[in-house]
């Protein structure tokens, strides 16, 4: 797996690239200002030490005025740069865009790929795939408190506000895996509320999306069957959904394609069998305060459950 990229300075999409540009404009202008002012200060100190001669107040006023004037000019440059970037960012909205609805929850992301045809809707959680080179319009909502969606490699933040709905437009220009994270403090596990963004080539993306539309595969082995039983008859189904089974809970992430995701616990730990076992056995140890309780499954049940969950590609 590619290393996780979550940096403003490593843009992978047009929006982030524009912001990166703006950053460097700001950085250099500010650096010049910084050095100039400090140089002036150093000169002032040096000069003041050398001679006590006073320049006339008029000259001084002129100099200070000029300095302020130059500052204002620098400011105008930055303002213009900012304004241009702002307009550019707004320009991405497109008709043929992919529409994704992301709903914030304490502390995970509910993801829906919208489609005018409701039966083509895809529900998943904590990991999104986007096609390279195609604009994506994300509808941002929240089910509880304010969260903020931030995928630095692709764009800046957008708050997920309860009772309101906002939008953010982004586009990935390079295939890769990018990490996003909740940026608005949202309670106990704000730290462990991450989102994996996979930018796929368009064909890969379509393949992925159509795969995601399918329900979970039926269990093949006895153990997997037992595992599904644990889900349907045990505590899992009270909160989680797995399409194709009786599990229809919506208070926790959808697990239909859990095994295809790279992390569990909203980016808390990599999705391996061992981690998954540890997570199910004691989620409070890994992510204290999260809403999943320890379920107290017997080890035989846990193994069967893992066998089944591993099939949820």
């Amino acid at each position: 797996m590619a290393p996780l990229i979550q940096s403003v300075l490593h843009p992978a999409g047009v929006q982030a690239a524009r912001l990166n540009q703006l950053w460097w404009v700001m950085f250099w202008v500010c650096t010049v200002v910084f050095i100039s002012v400090l140089t002036a200060l150093a000169m002032a100190i040096a000069r003041g030490r050398r001679s006590a001669s006073n320049a006339s107040d008029a000259t001084l006023t002129g100099s200070v005025g000029a300095a302020v004037g130059i500052s204002v000019a620098a400011l105008l440059v930055l303002l213009t740069a900012s304004e241009i970037t702002g307009r550019d960012l707004d320009a991405l909205k497109a008709q043929n865009a992919l529409r994704i609805q992301i709903t914030g929850n304490q502390w995970w992301w509910d993801v829906q790929y919208l489609n005018p045809d409701p039966s083509l809707t895809v529900v998943t959680a904590n990991e999104i795939h986007v096609p390279v080179g195609r604009p994506v319009g994300i509808v941002a909502k929240s089910n509880d408190v304010i969260h903020s969606l931030w995928i630095p490699a692709l764009h800046g933040k957008r708050d997920l506000l309860p009772g309101r709905q906002s939008e953010i437009w982004l586009q990935a220009d390079r295939a890769g895996v990018y990490r996003g994270q909740c940026a608005e403090y949202c309670g106990a596990q704000h730290a462990k509320m991450a989102l994996t963004v996979v930018a796929d080539l368009p064909d890969d993306f379509e393949r992925w999306l159509s795969h995601m539309r399918g329900p979970a595969p039926p269990p093949a082995t006895e153990s997997q069957m037992r595992g599904r039983d644990v889900i349907e008859r045990g505590p899992c189904a009270m909160c989680h959904s797995i399409a194709g089974t009786l599990a229809g809970g919506r208070t926790a992430p959808d697990l239909t394609h859990l095994a295809s995701r790279s992390a569990i616990g909203a980016g808390s730990i990599p999705n391996t069998r061992g981690n998954l076992a540890g997570w199910i056995a004691d989620p409070q140890h890994i992510k204290p305060g999260n809403k999943m309780p320890a379920t107290g499954l017997a080890s035989e049940e846990l193994q069967a459950l893992l066998d089944y969950l591993e099939t949820l590609k």
Partner: peptide, 8 residues
């Protein structure tokens, strides 16, 4: 019982 943990 058994569907949700005792703690809950």
């Amino acid at each position: 019982g058994g569907h949700i943990p005792d703690q809950q």
